[in-house]
Amino acid sequence: MNEMTLDQVLTKHHKDNAIVDVDEPTVKLVVFALGNDWFAFHGNHIREILAQVDVFFVPGCPPSIEGVINVRGDIESVIRPRELLGLPDSGAYTCSSVLLGRGGGVSSGVRVDRVIDVIDAPQSSVQPPPATLPERMRLLALGVVHFQEHLVIVLNIDTMFAEFSRGLG
């Protein structure tokens, strides 16, 4: 490094930049955690992230619905994604958030343990779901990305909500 002239440094810098600057299409992802597993929804399907929201019990609901929330006067359901993904219930609901999403003709909240980040990931970084994923999850997965040394499964909210509302019918 020491032997580099200023020019060389600038050239290298320019090259580095050039690599970064390639106009690759990106996708916005809302990354969240359910227990130790990380998942993501496409950002354009998520209308809002609600922290600290009171969920009200609704009698006679299937287990996939936790209850309902009051979003400025509109009633929205809150889905327990674990049921749909076939994950065990962690029981940890403290400081969890609700993602308000729309897909498959249904609008609903989704209970997540923790929202990690909202990122713009290059489209090429989203890889097809590995065959090792459990059957249930593979049906709902659009692909996987690596983020902060975690494998993040990108979920198809359309399929997920459609399946959810089928379960209600």
Binding site: V58, G60, C61, I75, E76, S77, V106, S108, L168, G169
Partner: peptide
Amino acid sequence: TLPEHMRNL
């Protein structure tokens, strides 16, 4: 009213 998908409860 409840959300559309919960009307059948």
